[in-house]
Design a protein around this nucleic acid. Structure first.
Length: 875
DNA sequence: TAATTCGCCCATGTCT
DNA sequence: AGACATGGGCGAA
């Protein structure tokens, strides 16, 4: 956005300076500046969508030059992008609760250069269901809304981005098939088996049943495979461990790798003195360039044939580096097919998806990928999802030979592409599905967190029903009174309940859990921002917690929008798609699609409760969130009580689960039936443990399932930052424990375990572990210098690294070892084995293994007392 | 531009 | 010096 370069002025420092200036100006006077900048650059001409062709809508944008919304469509047959400019005369607007005359009297509004007209509109008040009259202020340029909304007491729907507003107004669904008919964009919905849907929803209310039929095509419609190319650049760096600054772009781009879904495997390399010439390597085609500028030109030429460019961290590095480096080498801005925003970068021939940002999304990580990766770099994500690693380098990029450089560079682009193609394009399909559910275009979708997705979905549904989107203050005015206090200081309200577990080993334990407890509560109790603690209501219900305290009221006059949407997704998932994903007799591809669909739904379902308790969420309604957790506690407490009355022994429970000791299955069934009857909730048998070992700590246990698989929850050995030598040792312990089938065999395991721990002690004493195995790996949440209240160990280590000119950034994982001396820590890169503080490591061994040994009744003293003797002999 | 609370461990900082 | 509170990181649900 903020680009105001005079031609020929490409000095790196000046660039940086001007960029900052540009940003400031943009904030002060957004409209003028942005329009000028946009006009300064000729846009890439894209093909116009043709009458009658079949397309997939992937995003809607605003074209400042044309002053129109533009729908970006993918043509699967020609594998290219097409655009459809708005031809309905749709304009940007916002709403006010003033009479039209009052607005007309305000010259600052009606005399504004962008003012277009005033209309009267009828909207539905979400709180009462009654129709209300509002005044619509229509403007020529979407940016004018920012100015005009400040001139009225209450401006409704004035914070919605124009292109999203356009999507809502025409009920568009990104990700879905469309065609052009009589010059207009028209949906092409597939045939859907309505019977299946109506059956699944036959006991829902009418509104939900209608919506279910509306929504079914989102999940059944074909997901197009879009032609795409993954891009990765390598920049010469004089020092290892240093990432070049894209704004300065002072070092040459020595290699660029491309991997495409059309089979493209290509690396463009710069010939350098002292390095061999790049040769084709296997399937990888290599093109060598003497001029970096020609290399870049060639790159831009190749990628212009693709509607979608993929990168991993391209927003932050590859794209801005390409951009500034190009200018530095004398290319013109219009030669570079990218646009830079403040955080995002755009590909002008189509779309740019930065996969780093998609995988960084917490909801995606936790619910779609079950938390399988816990660091966000390409290597970690690829290892977790693909089982492939980056090529290992033992020298800096600038020093390795050309063949290695090509191999390394290409692997990165290949991995990036594969992240979207593995398991039948799982990730790509997820992205499209998320787009359909959230109604966000793919670029915005992949760059925003879950609250933006949920917000957009809710706004779209409001508009579809003609509901006015309320102001945040109007919601908090009703739903911000909280009745509980959290267990943890600083939190807003009381959360879930955790039953104190016993210490010891228990054979034959069955775990019951409530299927989607919170979403089901939201649906069954009709919870929503507009139903909880409202002023006017005929049919009121109470929200009681586990102690019988009435915390809130719920209005049952009309179905709450949150209850409807959450219930809808939940039922689609549980009643249709979870079953379909396991169904035999349908083809593999169809089945994986169903699995994608149910996983995608899970993301929205599980995030809904949380966003209503998040202050930054525009529909923030903490009383709703508080009601959900209170009802959760109420339900689980009642169920425990009932279970005990039935003679079941409840060992443990957390939020929505019950661990039951030696249950009789008929009794379990009776309990399940009772829960269904009492609350309308589904309590299910989740799994059975051959035995489970409780350490006595909450959220901390070790269980062996009937199929020999091991479940380890919350234990130190499982934490990402625990040193590798401990994780390895614990794995061996785990394997010992997995073999135990009877209480008698447990005795033997205890002995073996004790020996294992002693071995670890001895190896530590003899310094048989290397520094990497001993390293604690802790993530920096922010810049090392911005830790003010405390200096944690990983920050100390990070600061030491900085002193040695190693670049350290937020979200980097710092590897450090504990050493003797005042500071007590050193980064692995700077430490030596002899200075390691063995005593400190003994403590770590103790706390790691104690969590298991405690449950077995083995005291640490016993191990320590024998350890010294043992090691005496081993010496 | 950011989903929540509960719970554990370790180190650091502060008070007595 | 030792008790106690707080900061920070990571995991469970």
């Amino acid at each position: 956005m903020a680009r105001q370069l005079t031609l020929g002025d490409f000095s790196a420092l000046k660039l940086e300076h001007r960029q900052e200036q540009g940003r400031e100006k943009e904030e002060e006077q957004p409209q003028k500046e942005s329009v000028e900048v946009r006009r300064a650059k000729p846009r890439v001409e894209l093909r116009q969508a043709q009458e009658g062709r079949r397309y997939f809508l992937l995003a809607v944008d605003y074209d400042g030059k044309a002053g129109k919304a533009v729908c970006k469509l993918y043509d699967p047959e020609n594998q290219e992008l097409a655009v459809h400019y708005d031809n309905t005369g749709h304009k940007s607007y916002f709403l006010v609760d003033l009479e039209p005359e009052q607005v007309r009297k305000n010259p600052k509004i009606v005399k504004h250069e962008s003012f277009e007209r005033i209309e009267t509109v009828i909207k539905v008040d979400p709180y009462t269901g009654r129709k209300i009259k509002l005044t619509k202020i229509v403007v020529k340029d979407p940016l004018a809304v920012r100015t005009l909304r400040e001139l009225v007491p209450r401006a409704y729907e004035a914070h919605i981005k124009y292109f999203n507003n356009y999507i809502y107004d025409f009920n568009l669904i990104p990700g879905m098939p469309y065609t052009i008919s009589k010059g207009r964009l028209v949906p092409l919905n597939p045939q859907v088996d309505v019977k299946e849907v109506t059956e699944a929803f036959n006991d829902s209310d009418e509104l939900t049943r209608e919506m279910a039929v509306d929504w079914a095509p989102l999940f059944e419609s074909e997901i197009p495979s879009v032609k795409r190319v993954a891009l990765d650049i390598e920049v010469y760096t004089p020092m290892m461990g240093r990432v070049p600054d894209p704004i300065k772009a002072e070092f040459p781009i020595i290699s660029v790798a491309l991997a495409g879904t059309d089979g493209l495997k290509k690396v463009l390399v710069l010939t350098r003195e002292g390095f061999s010439h790049g040769k084709n390597m296997g399937e990888v085609e290599v093109e060598s360039f003497d001029s970096e500028r020609e290399l870049l030109r060639r790159l831009f030429e190749i990628i212009s044939n693709y509607p979608l460019v993929l990168t991993f961290n391209g927003d932050d590095f590859d794209v801005p580096y390409l951009y500034y480096r190009s200018l530095k080498l004398g290319l013109m801005p219009e030669d570079v097919p990218f646009d830079l925003g403040s955080r995002d970068t755009k590909f002008l021939h189509g779309f740019h998806v930065d996969l780093y940002r998609f995988f960084f999304n917490k909801a995606v990580r936790n619910y779609a990928f079950e938390g399988r990766y816990s660091e966000y770099n390409l290597d970690t994500v690829a290892q977790a999802l693909l089982g492939i690693s980056k090529v290992k380098l033992d020298d800096s990029i600038g020093a390795i030979d050309t063949a290695k450089l090509i191999e390394y560079n290409f692997r990165d682009s290949e991995i990036t592409l594969n992240l979207t193609t593995f398991q039948g394009e799982l990730v790509w399909k997820l992205i499209v599905l998320f787009s359909r559910i959230s109604k966000l275009g793919i670029e915005e979708l992949t760059r925003t967190e879950i609250s933006a997705w949920v917000k957009n979905l809710y706004y779209w549904e409001h508009r579809k029903r003609g509901w006015l989107i309320p102001l945040k203050e109007e919601i908090t005015e009703r739903t911000s009174k909280l009745k509980t206090s959290a267990v943890i200081k600083g939190k807003g309200y009381k959360g879930a309940m955790v039953i104190d577990p016993p210490v010891g080993v228990f054979f034959d334990v069955t775990v019951l859990d409530f299927a989607s407890l919170y979403p089901s509560i939201i649906r069954n109790w009709n919870l929503s921002y507009e139903t909880v603690d409202v002023k006017e209501c005929k049919k009121l219900d109470e929200v009681k917690d586990e102690e019988g305290n009435v915390l809130h009221t719920v209005c049952k006059d009309r179905p709450g929008i949150t209850a409807v949407i959450t219930g809808l997704l939940r039922d689609f998932r549980v009643k249709i798609y979870k079953k379909k994903a396991k169904q035999k007799g349908i083809d593999e591809e169809r089945r994986t699609l169903y699995d994608v669909v149910q996983r995608g739904m899970k993301v929205f379902i599980n995030a809904t409760y949380g966003v209503f308790g998040a202050e930054t969420f525009p529909l923030y309604a903490p009383a709703v969130a508080e009601s959900v957790t209170a009802l959760g506690r109420f339900v689980i407490t009642s169920t425990v009580k009932k279970a005990e009355e039935m003679g079941l022994k409840v060992l443990y429970g957390d939020t929505d689960s019950l661990f039951i000791y030696k249950p009789r299955s008929e009794v379990l069934k009776k309990l399940v039936d009772w829960v269904k009857e009492a609350f309308g909730l589904d309590l299910e048998v989740d799994k059975s443990y051959r035995y489970i070992a409780f350490s006595g700590l909450k959220k901390n246990y070790f269980g062996v399932l009937e199929n020999d698989k091991v479940d380890i929850k919350g234990m130190l050995a499982k934490k990402r930052n625990t040193p590798e030598f401990l994780k390895e040792a614990f794995k061996e312990a785990r394997d010992l424990m997995a073999k135990v089938r009877t209480p008698e065999e447990m005795e033997k395991a205890k002995q073996d375990l004790t020996v294992k721990v002693k071995e670890v002690y001895a190896k530590l004493r003899n310094k048989e572990y290397n520094l990497d195995e001993l390293a604690f790996r802790v993530m920096l949440a922010k810049d090392p210098n911005s830790y003010e209240k405390n200096t944690p160990q990983h920050v100390k280590a990070a600061r030491l690294l900085r002193e040695f000119n190693v670049q350290v950034l937020p979200r980097d994982v710092i590897s450090f070892v504990k050493v003797k001396g005042r500071e007590g820590v050193k980064p692995v890169q700077l430490a030596k084995l002899p200075e390691v503080d063995v005593e400190k490591y003994y403590d770590s061994v103790k706390s790691t293994f104690e969590q298991l040994l405690k449950s077995l009744g083995v005291s640490w003293e016993k191990i320590e007392s024998t350890t010294s003797i043992e090691s005496f002999f081993s010496r």
